[in-house]
Design a protein around this nucleic acid. Structure first.
Length: 493
RNA sequence: GCCCUCAUCGUCUAGCGGUCAGGACGGGACCCUUUCAAGGUCCAGACAGGGGUUCGACUCCCCUUGAGGGCACCA
C-alpha cells in the first residue's frame, strides 16, 4: 500500500516504566509500516504527568527499541527537524493552543477544585447517572474568568464540547465511529500546573510533527471523538487514525506481571532473541497467508498496518518458545556460540575462570543448538563441562530398570567402561561408541541400558547432550575418573 | 450504570458471496533414536446463537449472547 505523502508515524510512550509488550507491538507495527512505505518513524516522549515520571525510563524505552532492532529517524536522543521530542519542553505550544481555543470560545478556564469534582462524581454515581463534568464554570463571564485567572486563582482549561449533535471519526481499521456529543463532557486540556493533558498535547504535536498516521492502542478509541473535535477546533487537518487491538493474558484479562514477563527487556533477560520476539509479537494480532516465520526483511516487504486484526489476541507463550527455538536453530554457529558464552559467563559459578575458552564453547554449541528453546536453558544443560568435577548421583539413581538391585553388576560394568575408555586411541566419539556398543554385547546388556549408567556417571544427570560427543569434550582422564568413582558408589549401594 | 469496540479449531491466524473452511502453536499416534531434543508421516479440532438480504452466506444487515476497552487536573 502506498500513501500519497510519505508516511510519518510515531511511537509516543510516557516514561512511567518499561514499555509493555502490547505497547511495543504497536511500535513494531508502526515501524514496519514506516519502513514498508519508505516513510519515517519517530519517537516522542510524553512526559506531561510530572507525578508519574520514573528516572531512567526514557533510557530503558530507547534500549528496548534498540534491542528489538527498531531504529528511529527522529527522537529525544538524536533530535530532528521538529525538536524537541520531549513534551515537557514544548509547554509554550500547548499554552498557545489553549489560549487560542479560549479566545475562539472553544475552551474556558475552570476554577472547580478537585474536592468539588470528586463530590460531583460520587453524587453522579450514587444517582446512577453518567459521570463527567457538567460545565459549571462554562457560564462564568469571560471577563471575570480572565480576571480571576490573572490574579493567580488556580484553574484548568476545559474544552467546551458541543452539547448537541454527534461527532464522527474514522479509524483505518474500523471505519466510522460515531458518538453523541451529549455523552462527552468538557474535558481538561490544560492542567493547573501548566502542563497539557494528552488530549491537547496529542493534536498539537502530531500536527506540528506532520504525523500522517496516529497509531495507538484500542484503549484510545473512547477519547477519539475528543481528539477529532480538537483537531477541528484548532484548524488542523485530521490524520489517519489506527487503533490496534490489545494483548490479553492466557486466562483472559490484562497481561500483567502475574503472567510472567511483560516488558521487552525482561524477555531479553529470559533468553529470547530479538528477531524471535519481533516475529512473535508481530504475528499475534496479524497474519499473512500460511506463513509463520518471518524475517525482518520479509516483514518490511509485506507488512501493511491495514491488515492487523481487530480482535484482542491472547499472548501465547508456548508459541513464543517454539519460535525462539526456530531462530536458535537457524543461528550461525559463531553467533550462537558467542551468545551462549556470554550467558555462561553470567551464570556459571564464580570459581570458573573467565573469560571462557571460546574453542570449548564452540565445541559444545552444536551439541545443544537443537535442544534449547531459550538461552536460559543453556547453563543447567551444560555446566558440567566447566565445573571441574560432577557430583555423582546416589546409587539409587543408577540402579533402576535393568540395574535394579544389581549394584555389583552395574559397578562392574562401569569399571569395564572405564577400562575401555582408558584404552581408547584416538579418544573420539565414533570409535568410543563402537567400542561401548561392543562392550554392552560382551556384558550381555542392551546398549541403551549401559549408556544410561555411563551418562549418569559422566554428566551427573539422566538427561544430557549426546553422550559420546560430550565425553570427547570432557576428556579421557576425567571420564575414566568419573566412571570409577561412580562404580564405587554403585557397588556400595 | 453509561459509552465504545470486537467475535473462524484450546491459542494465533488465512478467508474478503460459491473452498473438502487452509496454515502455525499446543495435543494424540507412529517412524527415527544412547537420554533429551530436533526431524518425518498421519489424526482429532472452528465459522457463538437467532433472524433477515441473496439463486447461494464464515463472508453483507439487524438482534441476542459473550469478550474486551473507556468513563481523572493518567497516558
Amino acid at each position: 500500500m502506498t500513501a500519497p505523502t510519505p508516511v510519518r508515524v510515531r511511537y509516543a510512550p510516557s516514561p512511567t516504566g518499561d514499555p509493555h509488550v502490547g505497547n511495543i507491538r504497536m511500535a513494531i507495527w508502526s515501524w514496519l509500516y514506516a519502513r514498508h512505505t519508505g516513510g519515517q518513524f519517530l519517537v516522542r516522549i510524553e512526559d506531561t504527568d510530572q507525578t508519574r515520571l520514573i528516572p531512567g525510563a526514557v533510557e530503558r524505552i530507547l534500549e528496548s527499541l534498540n534491542w528489538l532492532g527498531l531504529d528511529w529517524d527522529e527522537g529525544p536522543d538524536i533530535g530532528g527537524p521538529y525538536a524537541p521530542y520531549f513534551q515537557s519542553q514544548r509547554l509554550e505550544r500547548y499554552r498557545e493552543a489553549a489560549d487560542r481555543l479560549v479566545a475562539q470560545g472553544n475552551a474556558y478556564p475552570c476554577f472547580c477544585s478537585s474536592e468539588e469534582l470528586d463530590a460531583l462524581r460520587s453524587r453522579q454515581q450514587a444517582e446512577k447517572r453518567p459521570t463527567g463534568y457538567e460545565g459549571k464554570c462554562r457560564t462564568v463571564p469571560p471577563e471575570e474568568a480572565a480576571r480571576r485567572a490573572a490574579s493567580g486563582e488556580p484553574h484548568v482549561i476545559r474544552f467546551a464540547t458541543p452539547r448537541e449533535g454527534s461527532t464522527t471519526a474514522h479509524d483505518l481499521l474500523r471505519g466510522a465511529i460515531t458518538v453523541e456529543n451529549a455523552t462527552l463532557d468538557d474535558f481538561v486540556i490544560l492542567k493547573s500546573d501548566g502542563f497539557p493533558t494528552y488530549h491537547l498535547a496529542h493534536p498539537v504535536d502530531d500536527f506540528a510533527m506532520k504525523i500522517t498516521h496516529v497509531t495507538r492502542g484500542e484503549e484510545w478509541i473512547p477519547s477519539l471523538p475528543r481528539h477529532v473535535l480538537l483537531f477541528d477546533a484548532l484548524g488542523y487537518p485530521r490524520p489517519v487514525f489506527v487503533h490496534g487491538p490489545v494483548i490479553l493474558a492466557p486466562g483472559g484479562g490484562k497481561l500483567s506481571k502475574r503472567h510472567g514477563a511483560t516488558s521487552v527487556l525482561e524477555y531479553a533477560d529470559a533468553g529470547y532473541l530479538p528477531d524471535a520476539l519481533l516475529n512473535f509479537l508481530c504475528i499475534t494480532g496479524w497474519g499473512h497467508g500460511d506463513e509463520t516465520v518471518f524475517s525482518r526483511e520479509r516483514l518490511i516487504e509485506i507488512f501493511d498496518i491495514a491488515d492487523v486484526s481487530l480482535a484482542p489476541a491472547t499472548f501465547d507463550t508456548e508459541k513464543l518458545n517454539w519460535l525462539n527455538g526456530v531462530y536458535l536453530r537457524q543461528m550461525p554457529l559463531r553467533e550462537l556460540s558467542e551468545a551462549i558464552a556470554r550467558r555462561l559467563e553470567r551464570e556459571l559459578p564464580g570459581d570458573v575462570p573467565r573469560p571462557l575458552d571460546r574453542v570449548l564453547v564452540e565445541a559444545v554449541t552444536p551439541l545443544i543448538q537443537e535442544r534449547i528453546q531459550t538461552l536460559a536453558e543453556v547453563t543447567p544443560l551444560v555446566d558440567f563441562f566447566w565445573t571441574g568435577s560432577v557430583e555423582t548421583p546416589p546409587a539409587g539413581e543408577f540402579l533402576t530398570k535393568k540395574w535394579a538391585g544389581q549394584g555389583e553388576a552395574a559397578g562392574a560394568a562401569l569399571d569395564a567402561v572405564a577400562d575401555a575408555i582408558e584404552a581408547l586411541d584416538p579418544f573420539e566419539a565414533a570409535p568410543m561408541e563402537a567400542r561401548l556398543r561392543a562392550l554392552a554385547d560382551e556384558i550381555g546388556a542392551k546398549a541403551g541400558d549401559l549408556f544410561t549408567l555411563v551418562r549418569l556417571a559422566v554428566t551427573g544427570r539422566k538427561v544430557s547432550p549426546p553422550l559420546f560427543e560430550s565425553m570427547e569434550i570432557i576428556g579421557q582422564e576425567a571420564c575414566a575418573e568419573r566412571l570409577r568413582s561412580a562404580a564405587t558408589i554403585v557397588r556400595a549401594g
